[in-house]
Design a protein around this nucleic acid. Structure first.
Length: 863
RNA sequence: GCCCGGAUGGCGGAAUUGGCAGACGCAACGGACUCAAAAUCCGUCGCCCUCUAAAGGCGUGGGGGUUCGAGUCCCCCUCCGGGCACCA
């Protein structure tokens, strides 16, 4: 039932149809194996306190248009939304105000939900997920336990940013120029106990899988570069002091082994102390202290500055030629990559070259440049020189041969290294998923191991003050482990999370089979399965909840599994995933990692989670720069919905330009699309709100109008499939203008027009569809199909060129021959003068497009 | 430094496999309607030359090339945006 508004009163019409959809559950998705499904996913938002940003509706409108279109094409569409609601801002707000972060989070969600509903998106609200809901994070914890059991989670000391003034750990992005972003206090590196996920075990699979997905090439390349696979060899160098064993290095260039004139160890390398001679000890120790005080960031920012390092006093033996080479330490070699030790070949490596110059080390050339140049360092192709036994070989050949020779001697083997590091998976925070882990002593762990089948093959341990602690997972039945109430959301002050202050929750008696617990201050319950335990105080990072939410949408209320096998099979993974390019690496890599683990465990049917990915572009402020509070150029969707309506906002966001482009907002341009919608309203209804008198039943449309209609059906459909909404809208404007100029329009034509418009401006389309006698909803009408016969033309405009220059046009029959066209062209009054007296050299005829007559140009002597 | 992406009127942008550059929209200008304004409708709208027009010339960041024909393909360069950055 439509409204009775006489003019385009979007303030009445839009809420009216939104409540119609809600009442009719128009977007509810029900699994139905007899129908083809289409799963279209948005990156779910973090519900911030500032509300929706104009960038949100850009991506969400794009997916909504496709969702509505696919429904009209007969697909069973799954289009869900939810909240990535754990996160730092809510926690900081809690620290400031003392209110529970959950309360603030729920307020923000309520506001986001209101804003998103006002935009008229066709989400199935019954599938809404909230990562902070224990019913949701129960399964986040459960998946973590699967990783834990598989040996993919471990505990290690890792350096983190610590701010003594704020008494808290800071994330990398909260540290700016060595100071805390909040307050500007100095920060330092501190080693703290951290959970780490073994994502490196999946490095190869994560690269391989990229071959099978339809993603932007740039995003695939970024992930590839992030994983950073490189093939090379590990080579053993004997140390001069044979009691110290061998020094293992990694190189991608074994062919340059003869050019090695020194070795470099990372300052943290375990052999450094033993290698350092008495004479060098003081200098080495000083250098190591200096390096330890620096962060990775400092080490990086000094990258382009001078190299630095210290000689250890010891020497190693080059296995290829027995040469005695000095061993140095330098911070340009990183302990975290390869073996933390390199052979330096200054002639053919920029970094080694800079270092050798600095410390006056020899730089012998062993690769002759292909172009004969003698500039150093030289890192290009060439053939070996100064390499007895290998001289004259091209370097790839030499690489193979030297590798093989070293392997035969048992002192080298081919290796693959990755830049990818294991994933630091814990935060010293309150507002995150608690780890379902309790720490126990060795004897109690043995007790548990005897009673349970679900512990990892190797126990996860951590040595604290000389005592080895064992990580005991809670049994599945004990999930979710919820956050305790705390007195203060401030960190503990020791670098541990606020959870470390909650003694009754933290120090417990634990029943190892059921996960039941009582505070340790109470008497120990009787029974051999009760042990003394301390809960894990870290919480999971915000990435955790977003790693698998697309699976929960399939079956959001399931309390027996994260999703049923039937739901996983029917809905499958998203057919399209739309979100910002800022998640190109982290979120999209982490989620792929989890999905592959679930696949290997037989818990999901496919090895990649996101078959097709698209990044919407950024919308800049009217001043052409990124929207920000400080610039005051932020546009709020609420304001525009109030002034122009959500249909106008949706249409304008899509009309701005290509979806993937970065483009500026313009308040003037939005008037254009608003006028277009008003024009359509007037085409359908007169000033009294009655059906426009020019609308007639029957065949009243001119043939050219019908052709345009069918061209538009074709183009709009194709453009929606290709996410080219800007050109789809411009085609609809062309048709709208033509209908306006026609003296009469058939009701059928107008109704098709409204169907095409419906995915873009659904409220207006519903209203006018109803007012023109359509029922019960424009969305239930099947998508129109174009009739190819209507597109046929009998004659067309042929462009005539002379020597490639446009000289005239001919209206000719569709199937004209080249000879006939040439005859017409030579007689053409605008063309003839350019042909007069000049012999025709050649004629190029592209049927239906162009006729180019190439003639001899008499030389004019001088130009 | 390395790897991507981009540059088209006053503005946002359009242009199958190379085939009428500037669709569509904004702004601007002229006209109709109106007492007037808004709204709406009709028209003009890349630059140069020209009284206007006809006709012509130039034109897709810059320079070269391939081609009957280049916004589109190739080489070099400038600027802008994004990512990575001592990974041996």
């Amino acid at each position: 039932m439509a409204t009775n508004s006489k003019e385009y009163d979007f303030r009445q019409i839009e809420p009216h149809w939104q409540s119609f959809w809600e009442k009719n559950q128009s977007f509810k998705a029900v699994a139905d194996p007899s129908r083809p499904k289409y799963y279209i996913l948005d990156m779910f938002p973090y519900p911030s306190g500032t509300g929706l940003h104009i960038g949100h509706p850009e991506g969400y409108t794009a997916t909504d248009i496709l969702a509505r279109y696919k429904r009209a094409r007969g697909f069973n569409v799954l289009h869900p939304i939810g909240w990535d609601a754990f996160g730092l801002p809510a926690e900081q707000h809690a620290v400031k105000t003392g209110t529970h972060p959950a309360a603030n989070t729920q307020n923000n969600i309520t506001n986001f939900r209101r804003q998103i509903k006002a935009l008229g998106f066709s989400y199935d609200w019954e599938r809404e997920v909230d990562t902070t809901d224990p019913k949701y994070f129960r399964w986040t914890q459960w998946i973590f336990l699967q990783l834990f059991r598989k040996g993919l989670a471990y505990v290690d000391e890792r350096p983190v940013w610590w701010c003594p003034e704020l008494r808290t750990v800071l994330a990398n992005e909260e540290v700016v120029d060595g100071k805390s972003e909040v307050g500007g206090f100095p920060v330092e590196r501190r080693n703290l106990r951290q959970w780490v996920l073994r994502i490196t075990a999946y490095a190869e699979q994560l690269i391989d899988g990229l071959k099978d997905v339809d993603w932007p090439e740039s995003t695939k390349r970024m992930q590839e570069a992030w994983i950073g696979r490189s093939e090379g060899a590990e080579v053993l160098f004997k140390l001069e002091d044979a009691t110290l064993g061998d020094l293992k290095i990694f190189t991608t260039r074994p062919d340059t082994l003869f050019g090695c004139t020194y070795m470099v160890l990372a300052p943290e390398h375990p052999l450094v102390a033993a290698l350092t001679t008495a004479a060098q000890r003081e200098a080495v120790e000083a250098y190591r202290r200096k390096t330890a005080a620096k962060s990775d960031v400092d080490r990086m920012s000094e990258a382009d500055k001078e190299k630095s390092g210290v000689f250890t006093g010891s020497h190693a033996i080059n296995p290829i030629n027995g040469a005695r080479v000095p061993v140095w330490i330098a911070d340009y070699v990183l302990m975290g990559y390869g073996t933390g030790a390199i052979m330096a070949v200054p002639a053919h490596d920029e970094r080694d070259f800079a270092f050798a110059k600095q410390y006056h080390l020899p730089i012998p050339r062993v690769i002759a440049a292909a172009d004969g140049s003698d500039e150093l360092p030289y890192t290009g192709d060439g053939t070996l020189i100064n390499s007895p036994g290998y001289d004259g070989l091209a370097w790839p050949e030499a690489k193979n041969k030297i590798s093989a020779d070293l392997a035969a001697r048992g002192i080298g083997k081919g290796t693959v290294n990755y830049k990818l590091r294991d994933w630091l998976f814990s935060r010293q925070r309150y507002w995150g998923e608690p780890f379902p882990i309790a720490w126990v002593n060795e004897a109690d762990y043995r007790t548990a191991a005897a009673l349970r089948q679900d512990l990892p093959a190797q126990p996860v341990t951590f040595v604290e003050q000389g005592v080895t602690q064992y990580a005991l997972p809670l049994p599945d039945a004990a999930l979710p482990l919820v956050l305790p109430e705390v007195q203060s959301y401030l960190p503990s002050g020791t670098g541990e999370s606020p959870l470390a202050n909650v003694t009754a929750w933290l120090e417990i008696w634990l029943e190892v089979r059921t996960g039941a617990s009582v505070p340790a201050t109470q008497a120990k319950p009787s029974g051999a399965a009760w042990v003394r335990a301390r809960r894990e105080t870290n919480t999971m990072p915000q990435w955790a909840g977003s790693c698998w939410y697309y699976l929960r949408y399939l079956d959001p209320a399931n309390s027996a599994a994260f999703a049923s096998p039937e739901a996983l099979k029917y809905w499958d993974v998203p057919d399209l995933y739309v979100g910002g390019a800022e998640h190109a690496v982290l979120h999209l890599l982490y989620a792929r990692f989890w999905h592959k683990v679930l696949f290997d465990l037989g818990l999901v049917p496919q090895s990649e989670p996101f078959k097709k990915l698209f990044h919407q572009g950024i919308i800049l402020g009217e001043d052409g720069v990124k929207m920000s509070k400080s610039r005051g150029n932020i546009v709020s969707p609420d304001t525009i919905i109030d002034s122009h309506g959500t249909d106008t906002l949706r249409l304008y966001l899509m009309f701005l330009g290509p979806l993937e482009a970065m483009k500026p907002w313009s308040m003037q341009q939005i008037e254009g699309v608003h006028r277009f919608l008003q024009k359509i309203w007037r085409e359908c209804l007169d000033l009294d709100g009655n059906v426009n008198a020019k609308i007639a039943d029957g065949e009243v449309d001119a043939p050219e109008t019908l052709r345009l209609l069918h061209e538009t059906i074709k183009k709009v459909g194709e453009d929606i499939e290709g996410l080219r909404y800007n050109t789809a809208i411009s085609q609809m404007m062309i048709l709208g203008n033509a209908l306006q100029k026609a003296p009469q329009v058939s009701r059928g034509t107008l109704r098709i027009f409204l169907q095409l418009l419906a995915p873009f401006a659904p409220h207006l389309a519903e209203e006018l569809w109803d007012r023109l006698g359509g029922a019960p909803s424009v969305m239930t009408a099947p998508w129109p199909t174009h009739d190819p016969a209507r597109l046929a033309v009998t004659e067309f405009k042929l462009v005539v060129q002379v020597n490639g220059k446009h000289r005239g046009e001919l209206l000719v029959p569709a199937e004209i021959t080249e000879a006939a066209a040439l005859a017409l062209a030579t007689a053409h009054p605008k063309v003839a003068p350019f042909l007069a007296g000049k012999p025709v050299k050649r004629v190029v005829h592209v049927p239906r497009k162009i006729l180019n007559i190439v003639v001899e140009v008499p030389s004019t002597g001088n130009l």
